[in-house]
């Protein structure tokens, strides 16, 4: 029972740690399936984390914070789209530009508003996403414990992230919009020839992307922690990109990849307490695992064929 509880706790921790990765990776799926490489997930998460915590703190309402995080993500997505879709700029460079600009802007704004050294004030219970305890989560025995530890106690954003997986699958593979979105990432010329607006479809994908990436940030500052602190994304935006490459740009495999990375993170946190390995090495495990996984899968299939290529409409002479 002791070991079983330990494993259950580890899996529960992995589910919590996977949530921001999953939200960000799903955000990436929408953008990249439409043909836009999104390296700006890190910057969007950072901005979303701050906007969410700041607005939740000022308004006292958790939902105002969540909306602010989504709006901030969408705003940055529109900027990314303006550079890469409207002006056909380099998508990778534009993404990095957003990350670096946000690493500069967010601490500056945080310091100007709250004067707490780049942090937001501590968030109270009403300003955070707290764990929701489901009914009957108090029994003994393995089944009851599994139910209590794995299903009960998660917050609204975790539920949203995991429910967004089937929702994304349905949207991408079962709706006309999803078909058009995937087509625009594979062959925008064909989409254009069919009379559909390439740029508008990519902007639509980017709006969904921004909302999800902002929520991924909000999870960090409003659920996992009680407030925003500097550098709180710590490369999670890039891990999310690795997860979606590993997951072949498909929702369910990407979710499994996020869970794998999060499990490594949870194990890492456990290993830190027993100190059998140097803590720095253990702390670097998720990053090492990411490189190994990417090296293992290589480029492989599943990558949208028009990914990273700006669409230039052919003009009749």
């Amino acid at each position: 029972m002791e070991t079983a509880t330990q494993i259950l706790l580890l899996i529960a921790a992995a589910i919590r740690l996977a949530t921001p990765l999953l939200l960000a990776a799903l955000a990436g799926i929408y953008a990249e399936r439409s043909g836009v490489i999104d390296l700006s997930l890190e910057g969007k998460m950072l901005a979303g984390a701050f906007a969410g915590a700041a607005l939740a703190s000022v308004s006292g309402n958790v939902w105002v914070g969540a909306l602010a995080a989504m709006a901030t993500g969408i705003l940055l997505s529109l900027l990314h789209g303006f550079a890469t879709v409207t002006h056909r700029g380099n998508q990778v460079v534009a993404g990095m530009a957003i990350n670096i600009a946000m690493a500069g802007l967010i601490p500056t704004v945080a310091q100007a508003i709250f004067a707490l050294g780049g942090q937001t004030p501590q968030l109270g219970p009403a300003q955070r996403f707290l764990g929701l305890v489901l009914p009957f989560a108090d029994g003994d025995g393995l089944v009851a414990q599994t139910y209590a530890r794995l299903l009960s106690g998660h917050n609204a954003l975790t539920w949203l992230a995991f429910l967004a997986v089937p929702a994304t699958g349905w949207l991408l593979y079962r709706t006309g919009w999803g078909l058009r979105l995937r087509a625009v990432g594979e062959n925008p010329y064909a989409v254009d020839t069919a009379g559909l607006p390439v740029a508008r479809l990519r902007y639509q994908a980017l709006v969904v992307n921004g909302a999800l990436a902002g929520l991924a940030g909000a999870y960090l500052s409003m659920a996992a922690n009680a407030g925003f602190s500097r550098d709180m994304t710590a490369g999670k935006g890039y891990l999310a990109i690795a997860a979606l490459i590993f997951g072949r740009w498909a929702p369910v495999p990407t979710m499994l990849a996020c869970l794998l990375f999060a499990f490594a993170d949870a194990v890492q946190a456990q290993l830190q307490t027993v100190r059998i390995l140097p803590s720095q090495f253990v702390g670097a495990l998720p990053y090492i695992l990411t490189v190994l996984v990417l090296a293992l899968v290589g480029k492989g299939g599943g990558m949208p064929k028009a990914l990273g290529i700006p669409y230039i409409k052919e003009r009749g002479v």
Binding site: A83, H87, V93, A94, I98, A101, A103, G104, A112
Partner: peptide
């Protein structure tokens, strides 16, 4: 009231303008 990180904002915006938005 100014944070030294403001410099990174200028870097980021310059990267955006020079690298992705030269047009």
């Amino acid at each position: 009231m100014i944070n030294r990180e403001i410099v990174r904002l200028i870097q980021g915006v310059l990267i955006l303008f020079c690298g992705a938005l030269p047009s």
